[in-house]
Nucleic acid binder design. Sequence first.
DNA 1: CGGGTGACAGATTTCAATATCTGTCACCCG
DNA 2: CGGGTGACAGATATTGAAATCTGTCACCCG
Lengths: 197, 197
Amino acid sequence: MSPAAAEPLTPERILETTEEVLRRYGPAKATVVDVARALGVSHGSVYRHFPSKAALREAVTQRWLGKTVGRLEEIASDGAGSAPSKLEAWLEALFDAKRHKAGDDPELFATYTVLLAENSGVVESHLAELVEQLGRIIAEGVEAGSLDVPDVPAAARAVFDATGRFHDPQYAAEWTSPTITREFEAVTSLVIRGLRA
Amino acid sequence: MSPAAAEPLTPERILETTEEVLRRYGPAKATVVDVARALGVSHGSVYRHFPSKAALREAVTQRWLGKTVGRLEEIASDGAGSAPSKLEAWLEALFDAKRHKAGDDPELFATYTVLLAENSGVVESHLAELVEQLGRIIAEGVEAGSLDVPDVPAAARAVFDATGRFHDPQYAAEWTSPTITREFEAVTSLVIRGLRA
DNA sequence: CGGGTGACAGATTTCAATATCTGTCACCCG
DNA sequence: CGGGTGACAGATATTGAAATCTGTCACCCG
């Protein structure tokens, strides 16, 4: 009895529509009823596929975080290049990805920043995955003799922490500063220098 | 016509009482009327000494930030000790000061975190002062040959940025983690190693 | 019988009225 | 006449009643 009731109702379609609704109404006003309305079903149906609004939002968050990881994974597992240059490329790719997400559609970025704050568990495992990638690059550098660190996982974590200003969404407002690139390079080169053999 | 109308009304007394009121009611509910009531005067009198509520809160903020600087300045201008060890001591003193402020009275700390967000101008010049202190230590190290950096102010800024997780109040919640000290040491030693000759 | 429905209870949000606060100013007092 | 007062006009915050939302469930349909 509504515009789009043709396709079968899958978790996938619900997630897509939820993103759409979040984009349109923002995190504060997007409701499960809105999502159901956009799908042309009753809100009870949405609860067949997701146990709660929180779970639905968590799934959307996970999806969004997943998009960045692919590109970074490529760099981390790329056979060519020295560890220091891979490290630099990886950190720059992370910063670029975040900066573009924030700059291209600030409202949507603000929406996801709210979702991130709501879903600290999802964020935590996402961060762990990124630190693990960093660890693999550093381990490779230690193997090859270009880097020298006593404790690879700790160093990976330290590199990630030290560059927080350039990937933590809480700092997004500063990413439009004209000097931010210079600052990024200063921190990055300082940190990489600190890892060198 | 009120409890404490003996002393003359000075900016100093107003500031003290404002701190008191902020401590009691929090940043959202502390009003100029509350401050005046606590002082036993009309709120019009408070406006004789401060042009606006914002200016009053700004002055309180500045006062609070000033308290940390003294101890750090001591370390920065201490004649004895090598630059790297002074750097480490300075960073640790900064972290300790923040961590204690946050841990000893979390509510008051939250109050000041709100004030900090309101008064970005005050914060900016406070941060500039801290970075300047770092710069003096680093310059000393370069002079003495223990450190080697191409651009001292940029390096000072980079050190400050890289250690943000351990002084930016936005991360205060993480300062109670049992692993935070280890993480602090990892970042600090990484950064100092990056500055070494 | 897997998947959808819509009525329902309790929790949460919205909205408009009411109250309080900010900032000004003419006036007052020692 | 420097410093304090309190009444006042917006601006902002509080409050409580009404509307909406979340999550459940008995029922229904192919």
